[in-house]
């Protein structure tokens, strides 16, 4: 089932929020993880509403608002969010208070803001949107769960769905994740990416033709999955103009190596985690990048890991895996 991305906005550790400066002026990180480049929120969120919002909510509300404005849809038929760790800063804050106060007198704000569905709930509250409101929290498939739901909704007859993927990082959570050794050799990051998903689009809308997700597989099993995906979409490998992969640099990672080797030698490979770093919903950004690549007909030089691009861009594939456990392939076209 096809759906269309009619608007998108992203806050990431690079310049992605301001469309005029998209991936301009490359930033380097002087802390152990990639910290999002956030806009001056006063200009985008009413301070009265913002006072209880942690960064994940501010990032989400800012990008969500931008998508609503860009698409001209003020009341979506559903608000659907994917997040891996949810409002982890407020979770950390409340846990710390439980410990320091020895379960004594605790201030409730961090607790009420800590639930995973605070992001989608805040958006509903701001928009006064009484429609379906869902939050998916499925590790490296959190965003893909949300996207699949949006696609099902279009199938069920919904017209416009506000969809997002967001996670925030803190020094302490980064420290824990690094010590857990689950980063796939990519520094951790954070960000929020929102989309308007619609049943139909115009000439600037990017089509999400298909999405396939699967759990743990061995690197050599991936090829069969790729072949099945291409066959299902009646695609020849030579038709694919570029790949958007969950990499931040050229890597020995067998999954990505196998994936690239399935396509023509010299096919352009954009590494979206160079922008976002690693986190459970980083793959949401791959769709934002894909939309910008197709709309602007370019591969942003700072993301290009290998290959070269000439001619036009019509069909791109996204492939990402989180820790070898959560894999997803998508096909975007314009």
């Amino acid at each position: 089932m096809k759906v269309y991305i009619t608007a998108t906005s992203a806050i990431t550790p690079q310049n992605t929020f301001d469309p005029e400066k998209y991936l301009d002026n490359w930033q380097s990180s002087d802390i152990p993880y990639l910290h999002a480049l956030e806009p001056e929120y006063k200009n985008v969120i009413d301070p009265k509403l913002a006072r209880r919002m942690s960064r994940i909510i501010k990032m989400s509300v800012a990008t969500g608002n931008r998508v609503l404005t860009e698409s001209g849809i003020s009341q979506p038929d559903a608000i659907i969010v994917g997040t891996g760790l949810g409002c982890i800063k407020d979770t950390e804050k409340f846990l710390k208070e439980i410990i320091t106060e020895k379960e004594g007198l605790l201030s409730p704000t961090a607790f009420i803001q800590s639930t995973h569905n605070t992001i989608a709930g805040q958006l509903a509250l701001m928009l006064q949107c009484p429609e379906d409101n869902f939050t998916y929290v499925n590790r490296g498939h959190s965003f893909e769960n949300a996207l699949s739901d949006a696609i099902l909704r279009v199938h069920e007859g919904a017209n416009h769905i506000l969809l997002g993927g967001a996670d925030e990082m803190t020094p302490e959570v980064n420290n824990i994740l690094v010590k857990m050794e689950c980063g796939n050799n990519i520094p951790f990051g954070e960000g929020a990416c929102f989309f308007m998903i619609s049943g139909s689009g115009d000439e600037t809308s990017v089509c999400v033709e298909d999405v396939a997700t699967f759990g743990h597989i061995a690197p050599d099993e991936l090829m069969k999955k790729v072949d099945n995906f291409l066959r299902k979409n009646d695609l020849d490998k030579s038709e694919i103009d570029a790949l958007i992969l969950g990499l931040d640099k050229k890597s020995q990672d067998a999954y990505y190596q196998n994936f690239i080797s399935a396509f023509a030698v010299g096919i352009p490979v954009a590494g979206f985690k160079k922008v976002t770093g690693e986190y459970f919903t980083s793959s949401a950004y791959a769709y934002n990048l894909g939309v910008e690549m197709l709309r602007q007909q370019c591969i942003f030089p700072d993301t290009l890991l290998s290959g070269s691009h000439s001619g036009s861009l019509h069909k791109v594939l996204i492939y990402n895996h989180y820790n070898g456990e959560n894999h997803a392939i998508s096909f975007l076209s314009l």
Binding site: R52, L106, S107, P108, T109, I112
Partner: peptide, 17 residues
């Protein structure tokens, strides 16, 4: 100031602390 029920709980904590 536009405070709500959660703020009231925060104020209780503030006064005690």
């Amino acid at each position: 100031l536009g405070l709500d029920s959660i703020d009231a709980l925060e104020l209780i904590v503030l006064l005690e602390k």
